[in-house]
């Protein structure tokens, strides 16, 4: 469904990604794990069109999307739940969710999707008419995910969804990711929380210093010696 081939990308004069190739198949949960600064966020921002790659090719459902602008990539159904939530602080939670339906193919059946999303996040329902800025970190993360779901994504990408959240909230977030995948949405998730993510994912890529060093099924990665030493502390 999504393929990256030999991608080089970075900011200004700095190159961050070097020769990154990966693919995500329909219905999978794929994860990219790696340390802080490995290039995980850059990978997602390149996919979504916020960074133009210097080399390589990105295809989505057979279409070359390498040079598309972010809003056009979003129009194709690739939605990113960004790191640090990035809600619209002075809009109500409801308005934030409505912004999720901005892309054209998400505008129909908004009401029923809102109902679905709110069933998944009862806490968000209680906060609908509050300003997003007044929510706790965990609640904001829920709203950010709910906003992504409102966009009716074909591929939903998460950037560090567990960042800065209490452990109990983290497990809730991963439960939700599992439920989203169960409804047929393809998921690409980027995390430093390697153990929990690999428990949820089907396959994983390990990114170190901007390059993919390992790719395998999630259970195999959990048993991999390098992973156990470098990321799981075992």
């Amino acid at each position: 469904m999504l393929t990256l081939k030999n991608i080089d990308a970075g900011y200004g004069p700095t190159t961050i990604l070097q020769d990154v190739s990966l693919d995500v198949k329909a219905g999978e949960i794929v994860t990219i794990v790696g340390a802080n600064g490995a290039g995980k966020t850059t990978t997602l921002r390149t996919i979504v069109g916020q960074i133009l790659p210097r080399r390589g090719k990105i295809t989505f459902q057979g279409e070359d999307i390498t040079r598309l602008h972010a809003h056009d990539v979003v129009d194709r159904g690739i939605i990113l739940v960004p790191e640090g939530r990035q809600l619209f602080p002075d809009m109500t939670v409801r308005e934030n969710l409505q912004m999720g339906t901005y892309r054209k193919s998400a505008r129909s059946d908004q009401e029923s999707r809102l109902e679905e999303v709110l069933t998944l996040f009862p806490r968000v329902r209680e906060r609908l008419d509050q300003n997003a800025a007044s929510l706790s970190g965990g609640e904001q993360q829920m709203v950010a995910i709910a906003r992504g779901m409102m966009a009716k994504p074909t591929l939903l990408m998460f950037d560090e969804p567990s960042l800065g959240l209490a452990p109990i909230i983290v497990s809730q977030v991963f439960d939700v990711v599992r439920q989203i995948a169960a409804t047929g949405t393809t998921v690409l998730i980027v995390e430093q929380n390697v153990f929990t993510t690999l428990k949820v994912a089907d396959r994983g890529y390990v990114l170190e210093n901007g390059s993919i060093v390992l790719a395998d099924t999630a259970p195999a990665l959990l048993k991999n010696d390098h992973i156990r030493r470098a990321y799981l502390g075992i």
Binding site: Q86, F88, P89, D90, R103
Partner: peptide, 11 residues
């Protein structure tokens, strides 16, 4: 309010 996030909504 948030240019980058708006872009991610397809604006």
């Amino acid at each position: 309010q948030h240019r980058v996030a708006a872009e991610l909504m397809g604006v």
